[in-house]
Structures are given as structure tokens and as C-alpha cells.
Design a protein around this nucleic acid. Sequence first.
DNA 1: TCAATGACCTGCC
DNA 2: GGGCAGGCCATTG
Length: 110
Amino acid sequence: MKPETQSFYNRVYDVVRQIPYGRVTSYGAIAKYLGAARSSRLVGYAMNNSHDKEVPAHRVVNRNGLLTGKHHFKGINLMQQLLENEGVVVTNDQIQNFDQLYWDPAKHLS
DNA sequence: TCAATGACCTGCC
DNA sequence: GGGCAGGCCATTG
């Protein structure tokens, strides 16, 4: 891997690490913040490697607040457990009060 | 180098 | 209002 290409991943990791405790965001928001709104899939793809890093990937969900990537975690219910541990209410893989818990990096980090 | 993949998003029927 | 299909871009084999 070239450092240049890795920068995109690192960029994603850096944003995810800045997500406050008990807050969640979406892949699209991160991609948009990075200037690649159409690369939302890449954000999720980057998350695949993020499990090796210290990245709270469980705070990143899709636009609907659904835990679509929970299957990629070590445990199926691990992602939900981590979120609930932070005070986030998750019902049937769906984050409750997603609008309130939603954290927009472009809006907070600017 | 070419082709296939993916933890998504938006638009159309 | 709900469901289906296409597209986008970077990474990997």
C-alpha cells in the first residue's frame, strides 16, 4: 500500500476517532466531510481495515441509523452492545433518537 | 493493467 | 409511501 492511498483510510479513521462519546454518524457524512460524498462506500470499506486500528467503528452507521455493518464485527451483537454501553438505545439493529445522537463532522469540526 | 468487490446513497417506478 | 435498481470511487487480487 502506498502512503498516498492510505491517506484516505487514515482520513476516515481520524474523523471516526473524533466522534464524541455516545454519539453516532453516517458513512455519507464522513465521506462528505472528506470531500468525497460519492465515496461513501469507501468509508465502509475502510472500516473493514479499521478493526485493526483503534477506531470506534460501532459509532458509524448508515443513513437510516441501521447497524448494517454489525456482521463485520467480531460478534454480531457486539456493535449493539458497545453502543448501548455508551448510552445509545438500539432496538432491533436500529438506533433510537438517531436525529439527536447524530453527529455531523462537517458541522462540528468545520 | 484489468476486472471484481463493497459496513452506501440517491433517484425512479 | 414502499421497494427496486443503478452509480459512485478507492482498494484488492
